[in-house]
Nucleic acid binder design. Structure first.
Lengths: 244, 244
DNA sequence: CGGTGTTGTGTCGGTACCGACATAACGTTT
DNA sequence: AAACGTTATGTCGGTACCGACACAACACCG
């Protein structure tokens, strides 16, 4: 489209590595607390003054101050400032600011999990629906998932960290646990890291089910290719998104 | 997720309700595909032409076209355009564009889960660590979670949709499942919706453990206040974030 | 009592982005 | 052959944001 002059890397348009990402936000009273704001608060905590913090971040003091006024209007008092005094004064974070930072960090951490963890996505058709929960017919059989109200042809996404594995023998009856989706399968691969192992399980579907377990669990269960296991995951943790 | 209505800070009437949010992105080759871009592609799919799509969105054609050039440079061919012809031409989405949209929607859906689902956060101290996995001492006992490498004093976040409940009787031995964190407790409250139930379980910790199960599971297990249950969750699904 | 470095507040330019507009190329339909 | 509505491309002005700068108020210290 735009480059009539063919340059070297433009030809390899087919293999574009696309990576998921996100930006966490905390919304209150019309203003949103974002990553920049978190960085600003942390810089103030480190430097002890708004001035030095803005300097460290390469931002202007006036903008930083103006931004903090907006934030405090929405989130409440964030920093205890003192002008004059030894060293001319300074600013320290309030407890509320620390709580806000902690909450932001928790959100960011949780979102990071979703963005980075492996997942298996299965195409399927909704065959039944009660409220937000749909029963979906997939290559591996029927499973239940949270689904938007109008979708019929869907993708079901199963995050690897929500799949728990059990030995096929000694598996408890299905009625006694709240994990409603259960599939018998055989372990295909085990990729064991230092503390975490990624396991793929053949459950009859086109892409195998991928599960993320601790290395400890992998050892305790004796996971190895060919082993018969039961993979289970909660329906409230698996989501369907519209296809087509 | 718990909002500002925390325990004892009664005097702080100016606490605005703070809501988590996010912005999903797909990153490739330096440019990021965001919500606006997804809306643009969907509008093109609906309208059949870039011109009409930009008009529908209230955006200018030139900007939309320029943006699409950037996107195609990074993500590959996104739309099959034809100028001249019936109605003057038009543009339709390529298969790659549809896949990109689907992937974006899956990401958005997964992130929505994290942002909206209730969670319980427990303060604790890291007492052991092997790789990315830390053992944390909390008010409810020891549990394992993914943790950043340097944190000692942490918050442990347990998403409600990752907690599975079982009848305290008939619970299988711990060694036979890959859900390493298990806590005995008693059901405190059950809030049953049409298809989903939110259950709080007293496990000895200050904030009770909150679990999100299907209404079906709630009925099958016969969940009601006072009932003894076992709550279990995978360590690969629970995350620790630095405190202090 | 002046020195110091900060907070608090306002104003002034520069820049980057965006919408509006103009124009060429194009191919089917009339 | 003319008409039509689109794609494709470039230019121009306006606006919103941001950094730079100026200046008053302040409180502790030497």
């Amino acid at each position: 489209m735009d480059d009539g002059s063919e340059s070297g890397d433009a030809g390899a348009a087919d293999s574009a590595p696309v990576a998921p990402a996100f930006e966490a936000k905390l919304h209150a009273d019309g203003v949103t607390f974002g990553a920049d704001d978190a960085a600003l608060l942390r810089a103030i905590d480190d430097a002890g003054s708004l001035n030095a913090a803005a300097d460290d971040l390469g931002r202007s003091y006036s903008r930083a101050h103006k931004r903090l006024s907006q934030l405090e209007a929405a989130f409440g008092s964030l920093l205890a400032s003192q002008r004059g005094g030894t060293g001319g004064g300074g600013s320290t974070l309030t407890e509320r600011a620390r709580a806000l930072l902690a909450r932001f960090e928790r959100l960011r951490s949780g979102l990071t999990g979703v963005a980075e963890v492996a997942e298996t996505v299965l195409p399927g058709e909704v065959v039944d629906r009660t409220g937000e929960i749909a029963t979906v017919e997939t290559g591996a059989g029927r499973l239940r998932a949270l689904a938007p109200p109008d979708a019929m042809s869907v993708f079901v996404t199963i995050r690897a960290d929500t799949v728990t594995l059990q030995d096929a023998d000694g598996a408890p009856p299905a009625a006694e646990t709240s994990a409603r989706n259960r599939f018998r399968g055989t372990v295909r691969t085990v990729e064991r890291g230092e503390s975490v192992a990624t396991v793929t399980v053949d459950v009859g579907a086109d892409p195998p089910l991928v599960a993320l377990v601790t290395a400890r669990s992998s050892d305790l269960l004796g996971l190895e290719p060919g082993m018969a296991v039961v993979a289970s995951f909660k329906t409230t943790a698996t989501r369907a998104t519209p296809r087509a």
